[in-house]
Amino acid sequence: ACPVAPSSRSSQEVWESFSQCFTPAVKEVVEFAKSIPGFQSLEQHDQVMLLKSGTFQVLMVRFCSLFDPKERTVTFLNGQTYSLASLRALGMGCLLDAMFDFSEKLGQLGLEPDEMALFMAVVLVSADRSGIVEVAAVEQLQENLIKALRSLMSHRRPDDSTLFPKLLLRLPDLRTLNIQHSDKLLAFRID
């Protein structure tokens, strides 16, 4: 639920409320990560590193459901719908364009909620490895999660062997989104 400002509020206030909306969303990703079987048996340092490099990408997957690529609108959890044009005024134009494209491609795969959740777990443990201490343990967890996702999807759609590879092709898209945007968007933190 991230209400974007009515015109009466300054852009700083808009950014403040947007940044504050991010905090609960990030905390939810941390709780989600802790629920991934095997994640908490990783070194705590590695858990933190994966979260730091993967949370933005997981959020991008989660936010996809807010985007309507056909109508080019975003509907926040509080029900407020905004057109791409009105959101562009906040200066997030290029991220929004990228998000619309990404959510269109992901949406076309028609994943079930449990497949989407398993995909987000794969996204998190596939995040950047720099700074990871026990790479082998992370790689093993990633392999297990990919195996689980593949068997869930092939069990459900035995005659469609293209869907899983198409899904994995979204991982590089997410990495690009992360590289292009997570260190550009500014946030305000109030201490």
């Binding site: 991010f22 905390k27 858990q47 949370t55 500014l186 933190r189 109030i190 201490d191």
Partner: peptide, 25 residues
């Protein structure tokens, strides 16, 4: 008084994660 700090979203995310793990130590 409220002090505002401007940072990248990546740093904002890192800060929240660090705080969460520190709190659950």
């Amino acid at each position: 008084p409220k002090t505002h700090r401007v940072m990248t979203l990546a740093d904002h995310i890192s800060h929240i994660i660090t705080q969460d793990f520190a709190r659950n130590q």
